[in-house]
Amino acid sequence: MTPSPLLPALTARAEAVAHSRTSGCPCGATRTLADRPDATVVRHADTVAKAHAPNSTPADLTPRLTAATRLPGLLLSPFTPTPVDLHGRLVTFWPYGAPVDPADPDAAPWEAAATLLARLHRTPAPTALPPMRGPVKAALALARLRTAAQKAATNTDLPAGTTAVLRAWDTLPAWARAQAPQPDGSTLCHGDLHLGQLVRHPAPHGPWLLIDVDDLGVGVPAWDLGRPAAWYACGLLPPDEWDRFLTAYRAAGGPAVPADGDPWPALDVPARALTVQTAARAITKALAEGRLLDEVEQCLVDACDRMASVPPELMQGHAK
């Protein structure tokens, strides 16, 4: 992948901010933590600079950053809630936090993630916020799949798995496809929860905090449980890890599911939506790389094929 042309300027800005904040800042190398079309992230010493997605606007991002500064025990706080413009991209600056170690799955902080989510869902939004962006991101993933599939199609045949994913998507209620307002307009949600969204701050042994506020907003809290629920339903998350996560969420008073009994009526739609989104991304990526789906990606597509034949359970009181 070709490095982002923004990378040199972002690196220089991260170094400048780090030096301005710390007297005698060690001038070690600046590391690139992520370089994707939707985000470029670099670290210099204990300062992290993030260039947000090209379509990010101050009107959407600033209230989310403001919320992070007002919820320091839940979300990592930026140095300032005001993003800066760097070559047409909004950039923010953050303290460095130690991420989850992907090489040590046994140490995955499922209880910490669940407890933070429950606390977030029980906390009133500290400022006016837009809807959380989970359904919008899912819809974008499906739109990209359709575009990629049309380009790759031979005659009238779609790439393998595409039809199953599109059929599963069409079974979802309108709000989960971002075609109608979310049925909950007041609960504070992260919008894109997975273990990569947790860091320890101060690093390396501080408390766990949630990061990445780009999708933060108000909406259906069950969406934040949707990805681990989807992994569990697809057989990609062991039952004991799912039980740890769900039990900790309930113990912390999380409102997304009942305190006991079957959680699936609340989780079914978000889990399906996240499965479809992830499968759509997998096919799009495989098409771009000219390869077949790997075992995990095929598992997600197979789940979509099964879902398309079984209508989702709708949350009580929430219509299609």
Rank of each mutant, 00 (worst) to 15 (best):
P5S: 08
T22W: 11
P26S: 08
A29N: 04
A29S: 12
R31K: 10
P37Y: 11
V41E: 01
V42K: 02
D46C: 07
D46R: 13
T47I: 04
T57M: 06
A59G: 12
A59P: 00
L61H: 07
R64Y: 06
A68E: 01
A68L: 05
G73I: 11
L76N: 05
F79P: 03
P81R: 07
P83I: 04
V84R: 13
H87I: 10
G88N: 05
L90A: 03
F93P: 03
W94G: 00
P95I: 00
A98D: 13
A98H: 14
V100W: 00
A108R: 11
T115N: 11
L117R: 06
T123W: 01
T127H: 05
A128P: 12
L129G: 09
G134W: 04
G134E: 01
V136S: 12
A141S: 15
A141Y: 01
A149M: 00
T156N: 14
D157Y: 12
P159K: 12
V165F: 08
L166K: 11
W169D: 04
D170P: 09
L172V: 00
S186I: 10
C189M: 03
C189A: 05
G191Y: 03
D192H: 12
L193Q: 04
H194M: 09
Q197D: 11
P204C: 08
P207D: 02
V213R: 00
D214C: 01
L216G: 08
G219I: 03
P228F: 06
G235W: 14
L236V: 06
D243Y: 09
L246N: 02
A248M: 02
Y249T: 09
A252F: 07
G253M: 03
P255V: 10
A256E: 01
A256G: 08
D260K: 12
P263Y: 04
W264Q: 08
P265S: 09
A266G: 09
D268C: 10
P270H: 10
A271Y: 06
Q277H: 13
A280R: 02
L287W: 06
A288R: 14
L293F: 07
V296Q: 15
V296A: 14
C299G: 12
L300P: 00
V301Y: 02
C304I: 10
D305W: 01
M307I: 12
V310S: 12
G317H: 09
